[in-house]
Simulated scan of single mutants.
Amino acid sequence: MRLSARARALTPSPTMAIDAMSKQMVAEGIDVVNFSVGEPDFDTPESIKAAGIAAIQQGETKYTPAAGTLELRKAICEKLERDNGLQYRPEEIVVSNGGKQSLYNAYQVLLDPGEEVIIQAPYWVSYPEIVRLAGGVPVVVETDESTGFRLTADMIREKLTNRTRVINLNSPSNPTGAVLSRRELEEIAALAVEHDLMIVTDEIYEKLLYDGAEHVSIASLGEEVKRRTITVNGLSKAYAMTGWRMGYTASERIYAKAMADLQSQSTSGPSSISQAAAVAALRGSQESVEQMRQEFDRRRRHMLERLNRLPGFSVKVAPAGAFYLFPNVSALFGETIAGRKITSSDDLAEVILEQAHVAVVPGTGFGAPHHIRFSYATSMERIDEGLDRIARLLARG
């Protein structure tokens, strides 16, 4: 008996692994402060929940078209024009079971075996795996504090080969919170057009911006770049709808049809109930989105100040988006904490979980082994409790 080479090569998500460990500890009666998972702690707004309940009561519980209901695809087109200056038709929208499936669909229809995808590091842990599952080759462009964790066209140009097919973008970024400027995106767009490359842009955190940062959809920068861009977005982060599993893509019809056909042979269409709720989210009041953003900003500033006071922790680049902080912890490598020699961020994350009962994610899975990711998608009280525990652990040595 054996597994396929594809299954054997797959690396599980470290974020989900840490989250599972922390939840197991909670099930055993241990109080764990969880800074690991990228999930808003807010409840889904009442108007959105009501729309889902109404869909059930009205019998909207049947299969939908593989690409999503026409009503939701229209609502997404309205959103894209209103928020991003993008004009799409419903047949150019594909609704999926979360943003991750949208990314999976995109790479499955874009890549042939051996084709390369430019991915910025630090990266969201699933990008390289999704590319590999499609037979592609991730080509990593390293960024760090010295570059502000920002990707530039010049960095990409150095990695181009005759096998390069796609540039993968994520702005605002998970895990760094970096936001690419309009100028940086214009230069990347020009490079993609010059070298006949596709762009897959993950814009799931677009609503969570701070310190005056501006979100720009790269597809809005001209018809040439729009034709070669697949924009990926969803409702999980901005509307606290992670469990509703609502993601979508916007692209030229040739790519949208291919992704819809692929989805029809894999998962089929997403939940009819979730789609009804998503229509209400996109067309309803956006006040709750702004309220969440403001609270995230308050937590961001507080956690940033507190992390920089922890011995061996350093956040030199304040995040301008998303809801993560990504401190460099390499100053602790070689130290002994709770009787354990720390040689990596993995070691440190394990000690923090085991001894302080605080869940954080080591940077190894993000392509940044000197860092640890903290999510501030939790209450201010839990932020203080978790950081107090870490401070006490470090003080013990």
Score class of each variant (00 low, 15 high):
Leu3Thr: 08
Arg6Met: 03
Arg8His: 07
Thr11His: 09
Pro12Ile: 08
Ser13Thr: 11
Thr15Ala: 11
Asp19Ala: 15
Met21Gln: 12
Lys23Cys: 06
Ile30Asn: 07
Gly38Tyr: 14
Lys49Asn: 06
Ala50Met: 09
Glu60Cys: 04
Glu60Ser: 04
Tyr63Leu: 15
Ala67Phe: 03
Gly68Phe: 00
Gly68Glu: 00
Thr69Gln: 06
Ala75Thr: 02
Glu81Ile: 11
Glu81Pro: 02
Glu81Trp: 13
Arg82Gln: 09
Gly99His: 08
Gln101Cys: 04
Leu103Cys: 08
Asn105Ser: 10
Tyr107Cys: 01
Gln108Thr: 03
Ile119Gly: 00
Ala121His: 01
Tyr123His: 12
Glu129Thr: 07
Ile130Gly: 01
Ile130Trp: 08
Val137Asp: 02
Thr147Ser: 14
Gly148Tyr: 11
Phe149Met: 06
Thr152Trp: 03
Ala153Leu: 02
Met155His: 02
Glu158Cys: 01
Thr161Gly: 01
Thr161Pro: 00
Thr161Trp: 01
Thr161Arg: 01
Asn162Pro: 00
Arg165Asn: 10
Ile167Ser: 00
Leu169Ile: 07
Gly177Ala: 12
Gly177Gln: 12
Ala178Thr: 12
Ser181Arg: 10
Glu186Tyr: 05
Ile188Glu: 02
Ile188Ala: 01
Ala190Val: 00
Ala192Leu: 01
His195Gln: 03
His195Lys: 06
His195Val: 00
Glu206Ser: 13
Leu209Ser: 10
Tyr210His: 08
Gly212Tyr: 13
Ser220Leu: 11
Glu223Met: 07
Glu223Asn: 06
Glu223Lys: 12
Glu224Arg: 07
Lys226Tyr: 11
Ser236His: 10
Tyr239Thr: 02
Trp244Ser: 13
Thr249Phe: 09
Arg253Ala: 15
Ala256Asp: 08
Ala258Ile: 05
Leu262His: 07
Pro270His: 03
Gln275Tyr: 06
Ala276Pro: 03
Val279Asn: 10
Leu282Val: 05
Gln286Lys: 13
Glu287Thr: 15
Ser288Trp: 05
Ser288Leu: 07
Gln291Ala: 09
Gln291Glu: 08
Gln291Phe: 03
Arg299Tyr: 13
Arg300Met: 06
Arg301Asn: 11
His302Pro: 03
Met303Asp: 11
Asn308Phe: 07
Phe313Cys: 13
Lys316Phe: 08
Lys316Gly: 09
Val317Cys: 10
Ala318Phe: 13
Tyr324Asn: 12
Leu325Thr: 11
Val329Asn: 11
Ala331Asp: 09
Gly334Glu: 03
Thr336Asn: 03
Ala338Arg: 07
Arg340Ile: 04
Asp346Asn: 08
Leu348Phe: 06
Ala349His: 01
Val351Asp: 08
Glu354Gln: 15
His357Arg: 14
Val358Thr: 15
Ala359Cys: 05
Val360Tyr: 11
Val360Cys: 12
Thr364Tyr: 06
Pro369Gly: 05
His370Thr: 14
Ile372Arg: 09
Phe374Pro: 10
Thr378Val: 15
Thr378Asp: 12
Thr378Ile: 15
Glu381Cys: 05
Glu385Leu: 13
Gly386Ala: 14
Leu393Ile: 05
Leu393Lys: 14
Ala395Ser: 12
